[in-house]
Design a protein around this nucleic acid. Sequence first.
DNA 1: TGGTTATTTGGTTATATTACCAAATGTAAA
DNA 2: TTTACATTTGGTAATATAACCAAATAACCA
Lengths: 121, 121
Amino acid sequence: MKKEEKNLYEAKAKIFKALAHPTRLWIAEKLGQGECCVNNLVEPLGADFSTVSKHLSVLKEAGVVDDEKRGKQVFYSLKVPCVLGFMSCVEDVIENRIREQVGLLNRRKIDGVVKSSDILR
Amino acid sequence: MKKEEKNLYEAKAKIFKALAHPTRLWIAEKLGQGECCVNNLVEPLGADFSTVSKHLSVLKEAGVVDDEKRGKQVFYSLKVPCVLGFMSCVEDVIENRIREQVGLLNRRKIDGVVKSSDILR
DNA sequence: TGGTTATTTGGTTATATTACCAAATGTAAA
DNA sequence: TTTACATTTGGTAATATAACCAAATAACCA
């Protein structure tokens, strides 16, 4: 890879990286429903303020979200709604994986209840 | 986030994580043009065989690519072409970022040649 | 069988990411 | 101006990633 091409792929990777964390993915989807201040994200996530704040700054730095200070609060919003459009593709990948693993189990003639929590990872 | 919800977001994040590396992103796009064996990826990337092989296994583990051994070679292919569809969105994000930074520069009345390599990161 | 090619695996080291706590900042209300 | 609230920043420790080298495996050919 040439240097210039590498720069481009690093820039692209940065967007993926920003979304490559369960908490940040959750935040992105939440913001897809409308803007939200940090406080209102902290509680449902069950994480520290500072942790959530840092996740938000990663998303902001990547250009995925926007922030706006109004009064004492900072309101974050999803800047690029198209990221949500990718989720159905991601869910397809996950479904495929589950299907394959269920297939494997069946081929091995192991019967039993298969919980999604067993397969997703 | 409840445990089950967390599992789902971790599964989604895994897909993003798999693509969140310049090399792996490059590989995904390359495979979008057709299957390819490891050997043919190593040279243009300029990385070690083992490095490329490990990147491929991350992509495979995430369900993004498929592998098939034929003779001495292993052919990798893009299993989920929809990931490529997301790239235009990613490029939008990058373009926005560039536009904003150029805007910043102009507002600061700093003139000069702005190279994409300066801004992309 | 023994050698050659293609790829993967294991080990190691360097770097990056994440979470939490404590302290700092900024804003508004008393 | 003091106080309280909302958020960010800095520090630190634990864990995860990434790159390379060396060695192992696997498939084919002589």
